[in-house]
Design a binder for these strands. Sequence first.
DNA 1: CCTCGAATAT
DNA 2: AATATTCGAG
Length: 247
Amino acid sequence: MSANATRSVKVDKVDEENNSNTEENAPSVSALASASNFDSGSSLNQGEEIVSTREDYVVNISSSGADKRRKSSTRLNNSSGKRKVKVDWTPELHRQFVQAVEQLGVDKAVPSKILELMGIDCLTRHNIASHLQKYRSHRKHLLAREAEAATWRRRRQICGTTGRTGKSDVNSWVVPTTGFPPVTSMPHNRPLHVWGHPSVDQSLAYMWPSHLASSPSPAWATPCHLPPQPPPGDPYFWYYHHQDVSV
DNA sequence: CCTCGAATAT
DNA sequence: AATATTCGAG
């Protein structure tokens, strides 16, 4: 008899030094991560660690993560050996990021400059670069959307067409030079608008008034000091994190 | 060698 | 989806 089938057993090799997590876990972080669990343990995390920018708390929720980190020779070990954790871009942090980008100019903003302007020692250039990439991506989409909408509006004005907004497929990498691009998508779904550009899209106009330079938050002076982030409870926390507290 | 940007991976 | 990591060009 031949041998049976394949054995895809994956061996988790956990080499590298083990970090000693003697510190107490931060319940707040885990709570944040698992805000509300509808189904029991479905897709909570893929073995990633979450860190709160406010501190170097590391929460290891899943131990099935292949922990592999290379130690560069000239690399300072972060206080308490914090390994590589995903940076949690809190709204506050994002705000600082956006401000830095705006200050530098959207076109001139480079990770290193942004990093300096933000003054967050906890972040690395790569962190900024990654976030910046996403930021640009989102902004591009928003601008494109706006432009397309404007175009359609013009066409509608000129043609007075009823604008059949039937939902059609979008194989339109081709620009709507002619014809009517059907409301591509996004029927009534509003994605996180945290990415927006204050100059474009009214939904994003809520950003900072402008003279917020003297923000009462000394957090800018300190590297990793973010005000306590209360449990959002509602997802809208992300949608409207501006200072507009009044209803 | 370092930085940036895009692509790719987790 | 959000970040991290990798890859190639300056």
